[in-house]
Design a binder for these strands. Structure first.
Ligand SMILES: [Zn+2]
Ligand SMILES: [Zn+2]
Ligand SMILES: [Zn+2]
Ligand SMILES: [Zn+2]
Lengths: 135, 135
DNA sequence: TAAAACTATAAAGCTACTATAAGGTCAATA
DNA sequence: TATTGACCTTATAGTAGCTTTATAGTTTTA
């Protein structure tokens, strides 16, 4: 299987596959005489794993870490679970931060109705005057 | 006022100020004979405006847009308000996406207790098997 | 046979900075 | 006077995760 077909199966661009190889997330495949990469089903599974991790918001470094655990199947899986716990708290703190932000933005927006001149815009005034309760 | 003092007042690094100048967000200040930048209070206000926008999560492009509205103070402020509305919906959709993500991650995490081997880890199995209800 | 479609590598671009390098300027000190 | 230290200058590279572009070689199709 060549790179284009693998890309189509996985729903990614060919460059993304080469990028993952370069980053050490996909093992370098064999090459044909002309230099074309030849992929096996294993590569397909590896790529699918990476993509599902990315959909879950895991960084390439976190994926790399998961892969290193997979290479040692008889270790306890504590580290895997811990990685996920950490990631969940990443996500939760992002949510919290964004919710606080949303509140600020909504209150800022409420300080202006349309049909004003820029000079009198409540939004711009709110930003300029800096009466933003931080954090 | 030189760059270091302005930086301290605004709570940013000097490089950040030069960066904003380079990006066209801060007007190029006058220079002393030795080439040092000399800032006025106007620059301080401009920088404070940018920083408050950044705290609100606005991109440099959005800030640039806001500045262009400020240059035309007698226009109606509809566009300003619209920009903020757009940004609020950016933030809201990020929140929604992250909340969905959190759900997936929590359910994935629940599929494993500690004290298993990596081979039998419910988390890794959950990712590998791809039984993730997308979006 | 010639164009279309595919593959290859290398390098730049994206965001919003941050960090590093290599050097010039200035006031105070030894 | 020489030197230290704090400040300033520009230019360049690094961060994350790709995407885009450039340039070129190969295979497939019309
Ligand atoms: Zn994470
Ligand atoms: Zn307004
Ligand atoms: Zn926005
Ligand atoms: Zn586990």
């Amino acid at each position: 299987m060549r790179i284009g077909q693998l890309a189509q199966l996985a729903g990614v661009e060919t460059q993304t596959i080469r990028f993952y190889e370069q980053q050490g997330l996909l093992p370098p495949p064999d090459r044909q005489d002309n230099g074309y990469r030849v992929y096996t089903e294993k590569h397909g599974e590896g790529l699918a794993f990476i993509r599902r991790c990315r959909i879950l918001g895991l960084s390439l470094a976190e994926i790399h870490e998961l892969q290193s655990y997979q290479d040692d199947p008889h270790q306890p899986c504590t580290a895997v679970n811990a990685l996920l716990d950490d990631h969940i708290s990443h996500v939760r703190s992002q949510i919290t931060a964004l919710q606080a932000l949303e509140k600020q933005l909504v209150s800022l927006r409420a300080s202006c109705n349309d049909d004003r001149e820029v000079e009198a815009c409540g939004v711009l005034a709110g930003i300029s005057e800096g009466n933003m309760h931080q954090q």
